[in-house]
Amino acid sequence: MSAHPTQGSPLLDIRGLTVSYPTPQGPAQVVRGVDLAVAPGERVALVGESGSGKSVTARSVLRLDPDARTGGRILLEGEDVLEMTPREVRRVRGARAGLVFQDPLASLNPVKTVGWQITQPLRIRGVGRREARRRAVDLLGRLGVADPDRRFDDHPHQFSGGMRQRVVIAIAVIAEPRLLIADEPTTALDVRVQAQVLELMEDLARERGMAVLLITHDLGIVAGFARRVAVMRHGLIVEEADVDRLYASPSHPYTRSLLDAVPRIGDAPGRRLGAPVPATTEGEAL
């Protein structure tokens, strides 16, 4: 697979990443040597079906799974995340790389106000209460939450699914990371809201020069968002190409089968147009 030429040194540079989990039957190898680079400000999609190892790869960047046994290197701005002490990893999380989860119903703490949750990444880094609130309200407004100053003190259950995902995005980006990892950010949302959320993420990334690594099983939503696509299967990247070339002439049979699963009505490639065939159970709400 051709390493894609990117301008300057990459923001995120994953080299030969392996991840396995201990099981009673011995270690289960889930990621078997992944190479992937994301340049500053670039938007890359990592595509594959459930079980391909794409989410595990994404979470490894922030070392979020204590059970995982990892090998290889994950260079974030030149520093290897896998070599860091827990304290150093905590400084990376949220500030240099933010994460958006797939299920906005489950990923917000039900007993805390959304304002408290959005300001946490700032508060734990010593930003004052008032300043943190000002920036959170600004960001909520920017993300299209109506009357953000009042909604700041509301609890998650008072928000709709799409609005909750905006809150999750706000939590991920408030500390202004240079990389946003979005793990199936639209899977749990209905089709109309999916497009809005993607558009918001794209605009935000443009404004801030923030790179985005979009993890998804749905090639249908990738086209308008990312310039480059990596296709993952069984813990390996099987194809990596510019989005146009990939759509026009997929070289790997697996990529072709993924493309066949995308419904095309009228003017592709654009936002997703029809309901996807639910290929996984990942989006199941609680």
Binding site: Y21, S50, G51, S55, V56, E282, E284
Partner: peptide, 11 residues
């Protein structure tokens, strides 16, 4: 074994 955070079966 599932590799992603599959929700527990909806029992």
């Amino acid at each position: 074994m599932s590799t992603t955070t599959t929700p527990a079966p909806a029992r």
